[in-house]
Amino acid sequence: MAKSSAAMPVNPHDKNRVTWKKDWARNKTVYFVFIPVAIYIIITHYLPMFGVVMAFQNFSLAKGVFGSRFVGFDNFVELFTGDAFLNAFKNTAIMSAFTLVIGFLPGIVYALMLSEVRNKKFKRTVQMISYLPNFVAPVVVTNLVKLFLGNDGPLTALLTTLGLPQQNWLANADPPVFWLIHTFMGIWQSLGFGSIMLMSAIAGINGDLMEAAAIDGATCMQRIMKITIPCIAPILGMSFVLNVAVSFRTIGGNVLLLYMPQTYSVADCLYTYTHRMAFGSAPDMGLSAASNLFQSVLGTVLLIGGNILAGKINSDARLF
């Protein structure tokens, strides 16, 4: 390896051989072109990063970041000694786990079933229809959930015939109810759309393997268990690991539209807690920023950890 690279002829355009001065002379315009983008990223991403100091302040909107008093770790102490934040943390973890554990299997089963269909037109039609929920606005989806699971909703009626009490299911604060609603709503939204990756992985499996197995008399089930699943296992593992990190960051967007004061005990999560502390009726910006920082650091740790783990499973699978 080292030998071959040493033997390679020296490329006159090798980046390392060009001095910064020459590079600037040649590519000035390229750098100028990047300036608007840099300004955009600085305003929307880098400047807010300095906002973390708010987490260490008794922040008031009137005084601003420079006028507010620093209080050290007081906000964090307040967070971890109160119930609301710990409750939100617990719910975030539980909802992430629900989404991952319950939401993972249907996607695989769906993709496997779809890959067995020979009729191309049927397959494409089902696929397209299953993508559609992903494009329905979150506001509309949550409204549909409220409508279908409300006191007089069709799904409530179905559950009532199964022997469950008639009620507005979204106002039910008993433990698994809200979590299940949130999970199944997520499955409805992303089943088809989430299967795109898997479908392409299955399509990429060497066709000769399948043919050989079929000629040798393997049944459909045998082919799935012995060929398809082992072949897509690395991708499954990778997307699972990375989804852990991503779901911890993103869980809560739907909850914000779905929850109500009665269900805070089971529905409140870091995202909604942070939001409510900042923009709710009794805001405490410092506390909100502390919660935000905690969530953000945890998300980063999980993302980096997930990425390393994904790289161990499959070196091509890393996100960065």
Partner: peptide, 22 residues
């Protein structure tokens, strides 16, 4: 410069404060 923003994000409230001061 870009990848750093993927790892660390200020979040909703700091972004709000930046927009507020702008």
């Amino acid at each position: 410069f870009l990848f750093i923003t993927m790892l660390f994000s200020g979040g909703v409230i700091p972004t709000y404060m930046v927009m507020n001061s702008l």
